[in-house]
Design a protein around this nucleic acid. Sequence first.
RNA 1: GCCGCCAUAGCUCAGCUGGUAGAGCACCUGAUUUGUAAUCAGGGGGUCGGGGGUUCGAGUCCCUCUGGCGGCACCA
Length: 644
Amino acid sequence: MSINITFPDGAARAYDDGATPLAIAESLSKSLAKKVVAAKIDGALWDLTRPLEGDAKIELIVRDSAEGLDILRHDAAHVLAQAVQELFPGTQVTFGPVTEDGFYYDFARDAPFSTDDFDKIEQRMKDIVDADLPIIRTVWEKQAAIAHFRAIGEIYKAETIDEVIKPGDPITIYSHGDKWGDLCRGPHLPSTGKLGKAFKLMKLAGAYWRGDQANAQLQRIYGTAWADEKQLEDYLKRLEEAEKRDHRKLGRQMNLFHMQEEGRGMVFWHEKGWTLWRTLESYIRRRLEAAGYIEVKTPQVLDRTFWEKSGHWEKYREHMFVCETVEAETLSLKPMNCPGHVQIFKFGQRSYRELPIRMAEFGACHRYEPSGSLHGLMRVRAFTQDDAHIFCREDQIEDEVAEFLRLVRLVHGDFGLIATHINLGTRPEKRAGSDEFWDKAEAMMANAARKAGIEPVIAEGDGAFYAPKLDFIVKDAIGREWTCGTIQLDYVLPDRLGAEYVGEDGAKHRPVMLHRAIFGSFERFIGIIMENYAGAFPMWLAPVQVLVATITQDADGYADHVVDLMKRAGLRAEADKRNEKIGYKIREHSLAKTPVIAVVGRKEAEERKVALRRLGGEAQTVLSLDEALDALRDEAQPPDQRRG
RNA sequence: GCCGCCAUAGCUCAGCUGGUAGAGCACCUGAUUUGUAAUCAGGGGGUCGGGGGUUCGAGUCCCUCUGGCGGCACCA
């Protein structure tokens, strides 16, 4: 008997019945057989050593492909689990999946692991690789598998089979020789030796069983694994690069802001950071004005009864900063701007002719975020949103959403952020509203995205509890993804707070509200662009745009004059007249990432010139003062005010 | 909030198995007036995160609190 095997290029060959993918790979080429880690048989993943069961289409997966890496990493997780269980008897395994650049395994053990254990565990993992244990797949019947795991004290595995695996699904256990075995879907490598040693344990963390805070907390060990040592080194280098751009580090180095113990999650903006903030605020304000928004300002603190009406008191009380006055009033700092905006909408009578009303506010909000979630500027307790609410009729939703999406794309482009896709967050499990409502609302959001020329990616269950939302996902300069820019539909709040307008028919109607933000919060957005630009802001954003450095005291007067003219031309300029060598000043201001250094010495002062040096370059251009002012003024224009 | 790790000068860090704190940069003073990524010399600066304990003796060991970091959970 023989079977027919078809390859991706369409070629076909006959093999003995029961041939394995590994044998097939060997028949093609030795080097291929070395690199191959698994196969796809008729599209389904298949172990290399698992005999084929008939005619099939085959696709071989090599170790440095995306799918191949996943298999290596999954094996690394198994090898980790074996190592841990050998070194720490009594530890239970739970779940050990692949991550974006590695893997983790969650263990249940009473005593805590320590990162000091990593060396020992890694060494044992390498021993297991050296032992080159065959990895064997066995198929089990459900009750037998449960009994097996119970018998060896693996309660979590038994529970997984009992509760998670659907009846009829095959239950497979992969074993490393006769030493160790784990419930697993597979596929896996033929033997542990194939894993190689390009892996490293990275960090230790707590994680809840099945991701639920109500369950036991397990100990998670994270690792990274790659096809070869070179890839591992590259990855570790990338991590170092990312660390250098960390906005918390840059914030201190560049003297933009700081935070301190007494105000966890609160930012002290220093002069330079605040200059950056104001630049962003002016920019986005112009963009919003051009897009037909009005701007308002609502109170920072409001009475408890207000938040009771809005529903926040009942639902979000524990995240609100509440205070009591001597007159026994209970007040809360606003966690959101929307209820305030509804009050402005409700002031006086609204006509359908006024809609849509696009009401913006740079609203400072306070939310009591859990202490463990705070993270630099990215997650804070006091922040200012570039918030706006669009009040409109139902038939205006699609156009308003589409128009907003276009605006967001424009803004992203101005900051060098590359749009990757838009997520459409659909109905979550806990939600308000009927299925008919959600069908309609989700369809409207999807249509709006298409109107803006974007096909949304469905993010199942990711919507707000009252309506679906669209989120932008962008990539920064080193390929990391950020969620930035969001719009959410809301029928609930206008209803709750009684917002109405008089329609064409003379009757009262409920408007719909669209909650939307582009930056999200100034704090977080500044964090994102700091990391995106690695602190080297383009001219229009740089807190100091031009640094005028003198060579000798003879040029001090001229330097002051140059700075004065630059400031009059709207540039942010400073002089460095310290008694230091020019090389010292250039080094210092280059490290501070100042975009332009203008060097002035005796020669420049006499000829009324400046020698300009751009950040990152070594060349200098000597221009007359007037030419330099013209050129720099042009360069410093915000993108929305640029000519041409 | 939960789990693990960490906390020494303004910053980055050294300080072995307990014997009473050090470097570089920054800062201040002086000299130097300098031509494109660090001029030289001198000086000041730390109740070693707070509190408690063990010990003849604690930066070092133990407990506890606070904060930071990495995850988990949360993110209206």
